[in-house]
Amino acid sequence: MGRFRENRAGFGGWFGGRLGLEKWAYFFQRITGLLIYLYLLLHIVVTGSRAFGPDAWERTMQAVSGPVFRFLEYLLIVVITFHAFNGIRLIVTEFFGWALGRPHRPVYPYRTSLHHQRPLFYTLMVLAFVFLIITAWGFLANP
């Protein structure tokens, strides 16, 4: 079956489509998740150098220090914060089935589960933002 006959959206379907917040949240949850996974593997290797003694540790720390890495570290915290706070929303909705509203008789304009969980979404994003402000202050205090 040819590509044009099959007509599958492919990776383009992961984002865009003129759709709402939740689809972007889904997309960024994936991207941030992948980044954190790659960082985790790197982090295990880097911090594992402590087992080889002080010289090895200092050498490794030397390699990953400086303003560039400090900035990347802040970006990492941004990424983790989004993933964590959005993850809380997903645990609440997907796992516990809370904040979704109950099934009801649909009357136009429809009020769906997406609308029901949006206050939670906004609250968590505000909390994440506040946390990031505090973090930025901490980073600037000790660059």
Binding site: L40, L41, I44, V45, G48, S49
Partner: peptide, 11 residues
């Protein structure tokens, strides 16, 4: 990676 992490922590 878990194995390496455990080894490093115990070492």
């Amino acid at each position: 990676f878990f194995g390496y992490g455990v080894w490093a922590a115990l070492a």
